[in-house]
């Protein structure tokens, strides 16, 4: 279950933003392992469009912070080939929407090589990418696509909701010998929180965190919706005792922690920014009903994007973007 109780609180912590936590994770792993390098568009002198790689170029230079031409299929393929031949690339895919350009390399090469080759290919590659609406970036720069990747056999997908998760998951991803996609919600880069300073702090893939304990209803929330669900839970604390779980890792998914919680509360809300049909919500709900059907006291609710793209105009974007308010309404429907 949650690593929070066991290790995270015992170590020393410092306050970091999500952005700083990810950068620190990369800095530490670049220092620790010579085989690790970063590759992507404008991640060097420019520092990344959302400033995540920042000053890493100053310390590590162009050999290890590699600026590429604008060629997502090309560098996704190059990272795949590099990972298969002895190095540990960390790709920055500027916006997750651009996975469309690189999808062939992701789904037919990166994900399948080890399997197709009878286990005779290594694939220690990390792909960091940004997701989410909320900054008026319109449909081609605001997508939440993690359900595609989590769906695809051979790939891991993680999606941090806190600075600690951001650091621990990024480090675990880089140390993993399998392809791991790290989905960073672009609206929470400035969110602050306590992060362990221990350079060996990682969050194993497949471990959820109970971010708030409660007795009445379980909210499984991801990314930006973790913080917003926690706020909602505090706001409703007089009426209903809400448990908030950040699965952190979408694939593998910590089914046990979620199921245990639903056995206790009998109610479940799944809040994730991806479109509602055929996705992350459905997977979590399917697992819960397989394991804990008879513990349920109310229909499971889901909060997500209502099967539209992310529109540009702020009133439209606000309309379709799932928020803590939607989580509150969902809780209201079942308690």
């Amino acid at each position: 279950m949650t690593a929070l109780a066991d290790t995270e609180l015992e170590t020393e912590t410092e306050e970091l933003t999500v952005r700083e936590a990810i950068r620190q994770a990369m800095r530490e792993e670049l220092r620790r392992d010579e085989d690790v390098f970063l590759i992507g568009e404008d991640i060097g002198v420019f520092g990344g469009v959302l400033e995540v790689t920042g000053d890493l170029y100053e310390e590590f230079g162009p050999e290890r912070i590699k600026d590429t031409p604008i060629s997502e299929a090309g560098f996704m393929g190059a990272a795949t080939g590099a990972a298969a031949t002895g190095t540990r690339p960390v790709v920055e895919l500027m916006f997750s929407d651009f996975a469309g350009v690189a999808m062939e390399q992701i789904m037919n090469q990166m994900a399948k090589m080890r399997y197709m080759f009878g286990g005779k290919a290594e694939m220690p590659v990390t792909v960091r990418t940004t997701e989410g609406g909320g900054m008026g970036a319109a449909s081609q720069h605001s997508g939440t696509i993690h359900s595609w990747i989590a769906h695809f056999p051979g790939l891991h997908a993680v999606a941090p909701g806190t600075p600690a998760a951001a650091k621990g998951l990024t480090k675990a991803a880089i140390r993993s010998d399998d392809p791991v996609f790290v989905f960073e919600n672009k609206m929470i880069y400035e969110q602050k929180g306590q992060v362990p300073t221990d350079e060996d702090f990682t969050i194993p893939l497949g471990e959820a965190a109970v971010e708030r304990e409660g007795e009445d209803v379980t909210v499984v929330a991801t990314q930006r919706l973790v913080g917003e669900s926690l706020q909602t839970a505090e706001g409703m604390a007089d009426d209903v005792d809400v448990e908030v779980i950040d699965p952190r890792s979408l694939y593998p998914l910590d089914t046990e922690t979620i199921v245990e919680s639903v056995r206790k509360t009998g109610r479940l809300i799944v809040a994730d920014e991806s479109p509602l049909s055929y996705g992350t919500h459905a997977e979590i709900i399917a697992r819960v009903q397989e394991e804990a059907f008879f513990s349920l006291d109310a229909p499971i609710q889901r909060v997500g994007t209502p099967d539209t793209h992310m529109p540009f105009s702020p009133p439209l974007e606000q309309e379709v973007l799932p928020t803590g308010e939607d989580v509150r309404n969902a809780i209201g429907r079942v308690t």
Partner: peptide, 9 residues
């Protein structure tokens, strides 16, 4: 684009 696209679309 009725506000759905913005500068980039």
């Amino acid at each position: 684009c009725n506000g759905k696209g913005g500068s980039m679309h």
